[in-house]
Design a protein around this nucleic acid. Structure first.
Lengths: 257, 257
DNA sequence: CTGACAGAAAGATCATACTTTTGGCAACAG
DNA sequence: CTGTTGCCAAAAGTATGATCTTTCTGTCAG
């Protein structure tokens, strides 16, 4: 019962229980209690708490204990935070954030890739886009293979941007894509326009045409964005939202209220 | 010599020394050695290492020690990583990444803000843009106040997007703006077009015109992006180029080493 | 040359003791 | 009655020493 890497296990359990809301912001824990709860030593608990603290999820103060911090303080880019949120009640909200982020990122990534990608990358990108069209036209939009190729395509685009921060979002995009498929939001036959835009983006990148690459990539992503925004900005009729912006439904679907 | 919060101190020193390259990737450390070097206990060192590990900067393995991981594994969104990089030799490169990221983010943030911001936010945004124009027309583009207002404007825009991930990038944008000023890249008289675009963005957000907000925000950011890209690209004669992307050195003036 | 085995190195975990900070409360002075 | 001071205990912060586990390395027999 010993040396198995318990650290990650406890971290995961505790982090998830916070992300899930089981331990709401404001809740105070004590090291002793956690020690007890997870059946591990103080050392272990401390290390875990330190990591959680480094993610902004808890705050540790003398004489008080370990306090769960409000959600807006969590580092929303930490892969674990993302994972925990995707696994809990915040799933939809998280997916929306990621989708919007992706929509923001990809056009610029395409533009940069057009100026920076190396030869073999340009070639692979074109290949993937072509393969994607084949699968799409064969009405295999819901196939695992479609998802796979789609993911590879977008990942490669980000990688080719030559920007480490954009490249680091590959997992995020993969998550969005697979999430969309999992939720059954993918049609068997993707819109012909979308397939075309994918190919055109790849072609523009290959040709080094930055402006065109950006424009086509934006086209790929814009409808997605509009869909998401519509989907969410609609249900805030019930202006119940406390000032918290975590609830995200801004408040004004319309112009100045 | 005891209970002073040493954790953050050691974390900072160690992290910085890694980010600065003083401890290159591949370097192996041992807990014992670190314990010795920083004059703290194992407990402390372990906690620090665990946090560094959670950022992807080091890897801890039995019988081997603590290995510094290659830079591409570091979490580029961790605020500390960003800070350490900005303080070291990677400064230009980091600033370039951030600038590109910012360019990607802002237009989408503007679009979302147009649909979600609340009344007072819309108003404040317009005010800030107006103030910005005043300062700009008074040839005070290098004033601390200009930077301050500019920062507030962009921060508010991100906040208003209602997307926690975009909102979390406020500090990043602030860093980019202040970096630009610090490097003397700001003219005393900002381009009239830029000022106009700021105002138009704010107005569009206030009016709830998503498409216009996005377009104007993109206009604000596009020239910046083109500037950066021109400065760095130049070697893409096609051919190959190893997967390396770390080189690139931004700065815009110096030719590729 | 291959595989099994022994030994050692280094992290992983635990248990415990001591230090420092700090919130709360009670006593006290105004 | 109110505000200030000072003490106490709680809880995190830090330090050590001991033990457990994993895994690398070398070696020796087959």
């Amino acid at each position: 019962m010993h040396g198995v890497e318990q650290h990650s296990g406890v971290l995961d359990r505790l982090g998830e229980s916070i992300a899930s809301g089981a331990r709401a912001p404001g809740t105070v824990l004590t090291l002793a209690a956690l020690e007890e709860e997870f059946g591990v030593s103080r050392t272990l608990v401390r290390e875990v708490v330190r990591v959680l603290e480094s993610m902004g999820m808890v705050e540790s103060r003398r004489r008080v204990g370990v306090t769960v911090r409000p959600e807006r303080d969590w580092n929303p880019f930490d892969p674990r935070v993302i994972r925990w949120r995707l696994g809990g009640p915040g799933r939809d909200e998280q997916l929306r954030s990621l989708t919007e982020l992706r929509a923001a990122i990809e056009p610029v990534a395409a533009r940069l890739a057009a100026g920076r990608a190396d030869g073999s990358t340009r070639r692979r990108l074109v290949e993937l886009a072509a393969r994607l069209r084949e699968l799409g036209e064969a009405r295999r939009g819901t196939d695992p293979e479609y998802l796979e190729v789609d993911t590879a395509y977008h990942a490669l685009l980000l990688e080719a941007s030559g920007n480490p921060m954009l490249a680091a979002l590959q997992d995020v995009v993969a998550e969005v894509l697979s999430g969309r498929t999992a939720l059954g939001l993918m049609p068997r036959s993707p819109a012909p326009g979308a397939l075309e835009d994918h190919e055109a983006t790849a072609a523009a990148v290959a040709a080094g045409d930055a402006a065109e690459a950006e424009a086509r990539a934006r086209s790929v992503v814009t409808e997605v964005l509009e869909g998401v925004v519509e989907g969410t900005d609609r249900r805030d009729e019930r202006g119940d939202g406390p000032t918290e912006r975590a609830a995200v439904t801004g408040s004004g679907t319309g112009p100045v209220p």
